[in-house]
Design a protein around this nucleic acid. Structure first.
Lengths: 107, 107
DNA sequence: CAAGATACCTCGCCTGTCAAGGTATATTTT
DNA sequence: AAAATATACCTTGACAGGCGAGGTATCTTG
């Protein structure tokens, strides 16, 4: 059974930023990597992924550019911005706190 | 700064069940206890709490009865059902897994 | 008597997820 | 050569949960 999306909610943006904090990447690959790392227990659905990208872009946390593949499907690359790195660190800290708080409530 | 509600989402029902797994209780008190235990970093808003109760009741995870206070505001008590205890254990297990998965993705 | 605490509740908006649908190219299989 | 699969992108509209704002009623304290 894969992870309920409500447990992921609030972390999807952070997960995407995590991937981009290592290197520029594109939607399809980010998703594949997430699935590989979690043995497909976490999978961002297409629509979820792209609405997240739009949100991150709107908020200035990522920038985007088209890849120059001469062969194969075109790729839209994303790059994390300085602001994105800041928010990423904050989100990670908040996640640590949230984890501890929730754990303290579950008997 | 308190915990973003999107990080709690998916855990609110579980948190309520956690409280009820120790003893019958009522909305107002459950919320107070959550705030006390988390130094007010987690607070279930009124509307959130009561919509959660309705959901839990509909799903047969809690049952409810009116307290017999002869003084003060009336209290609606909730009691966790056997099914509720089952779901609670499942939710906790899923939370443990989700935590590990998310952590594995955050660098 | 006013204010605050206790205790319950509903309505309607907002946001994030996602099923379903679509486009286009390259590779592999039949 | 045609079909299937993989790569890669995107939009629309429905749905569910959270919650601001509003309400009711009782009791205690200043």
């Amino acid at each position: 059974m894969s992870i309920a999306s409500d447990l992921l909610r609030g972390n999807t943006d952070t997960i995407i930023l995590a991937s981009l904090s290592e290197r520029d990447s594109y939607g399809y690959l980010i998703n594949k990597e997430i699935m590989a790392k979690t043995e497909a227990q976490i999978e961002l659905k297409d629509a979820t992924l792209y609405s997240a990208f739009r949100r991150l872009e709107k908020d200035g946390l990522v920038s985007t550019y088209w890849g120059d593949e001469e062969v194969g499907a075109r790729r839209r690359y994303y790059s994390i911005t300085d602001k994105g790195r800041e928010v990423y660190e904050q989100n990670k800290a908040e996640w640590q706190k949230a984890k501890a708080m929730i754990d303290s409530l579950l008997v």
